[in-house]
Design a protein around this nucleic acid. Structure first.
Lengths: 226, 226
DNA sequence: AGATTTTTAAGTGTCGACAGACTACAGAAG
DNA sequence: CTTCTGTAGTCTGTCGACACTTAAAAATCT
């Protein structure tokens, strides 16, 4: 009897929200692209009501922008926006590193370590496939640290900030041996967490994101200057 | 010819959003209260569509909670929630203090100073009227610092966090001579900003919010323990 | 009366419709 | 050929309607 479970029908507006969000974060919808709720509703064979609600949520989240004429576009950050976002990320993710250093169990630290170890194997080999895997593994490193911080609000805030800057995460691995730098910094942070030195862990996380930002700035100006 | 200006009609869902938000933050709607979109629509003589959209935005903002049975209630933070929120506020508002110390013009610093000076006059006199004015003035102090930080993302994040903890701002002034403590701390922060010492300014802001939090914790446990 | 079932009222999720705003384009006027 | 104007199509903002769910009230049975 227990094996039966009634599924509540998933609301359309939740599905639309998740779908659109995914499309934006995954890059199927690019920054600046126009969105038409009428069109989306038609494509999905539903009415506009659920779509509108999803759009309102995504706008509040910052992923969609609605101009004064009600035109909807995918959020396209300026360089200043990216700096702003990163400044916030730096302090919040430092906090996450601090809390996790303080609270994480040995097992949890091991889970974090695993992402570092695993990412190592992708470093030596070339190829698009490996690059994607590496990016995913690096993302996981940050995710876990946030997760183990045990601060719900922090998770929410950083989730939003991440999705806002996700577009650039892919760009982040261009140039010199950027992957190695990231790898080393992750290792450093982990080391401090294992030593339970929360001040240092927070500090290194801050620094890590700062170099990230510096690198992004370059990429950005190079990219938009053509 | 220039004196004519066409006003765009304000969208209902914007108005509903603002109205509901204000009602929650001002305390007309208390944490845990139930909300019915149908009822709101009826009261305002509009259809449910704009109300629903406003509700979705407020849910994303965190001011409304929607349970698995679609019942809508005003967000009622637990003690842990408050701690979480304050931990975020501490790092973000420290950042605001830092940026403002770095970037604010002399005039802007003077505007901040004004809130401190003005609040002084409410300290000596008793009475509900003065208490409200004092709370408003103290709020303005924080507002201005955030505003002058010139970081849009930071402003948004803190706006949300403030509204989430607003319910407690009123409680914050109970007990001993709490007002004086706050007043002094504000003065200290301002002093560091005027000296353009951003490290110290950020540090003191952090400390200020920490004592705030400690005090809130007490109040909270006292309040919910009856 | 107390427990159980049935009715009824009220709320949510979704839909299709309609008016008004914008855009793009075709045709008229210079 | 360019510029203005009219018009058709598309999109948004809002509405009222309907099905379904939940919760409360009423009715029924023991």
């Amino acid at each position: 009897m227990d094996s039966f479970s009634i599924e509540k029908p998933v609301r359309y507006y939740d599905q639309v929200y998740n779908t659109l969000r995914e499309m934006i974060v995954q890059g199927d919808l690019k920054p600046g692209d126009s969105i038409y709720e009428a069109r989306i509703a038609r494509d999905l064979n539903i009415s506009r009501s659920p779509v509108r609600e999803a759009v309102r949520a995504l706008e509040k989240e910052g992923l969609l922008a609605i101009d004064e004429k009600s035109r909807i576009t995918v959020y396209k950050p300026t360089l200043k926006d990216i700096v702003d976002i990163y400044e916030c990320r730096m302090v919040l993710e430092s906090l996450a590193a601090r809390l996790t250093t303080r609270l994480a169990t040995a097992q949890e630290l091991q889970n974090i370590e695993k992402t570092v170890i695993d990412s190592k194997q992708y470093l030596d080999v070339e190829g698009e496939r490996n690059r994607q895997a590496l990016i995913a593994e690096n993302g996981r490193f940050h995710e876990l640290i946030i997760k183990y911080s045990q601060n719900r609000r922090l998770k929410k805030q950083l989730r939003d900030l991440h999705s806002l800057s996700h577009y650039f995460r892919t760009l982040n691995f261009q140039g010199e041996n950027r992957e190695w730098i990231v790898y080393n910094e992750h290792q450093d942070i982990l080391a401090q967490m294992k030593r339970r030195d929360e001040d240092k862990a927070a500090f290194m996380m801050n620094k890590h994101l700062e170099t990230d930002l510096e690198h992004l700035k370059e990429i950005f100006t190079r990219y938009t200057k053509e």
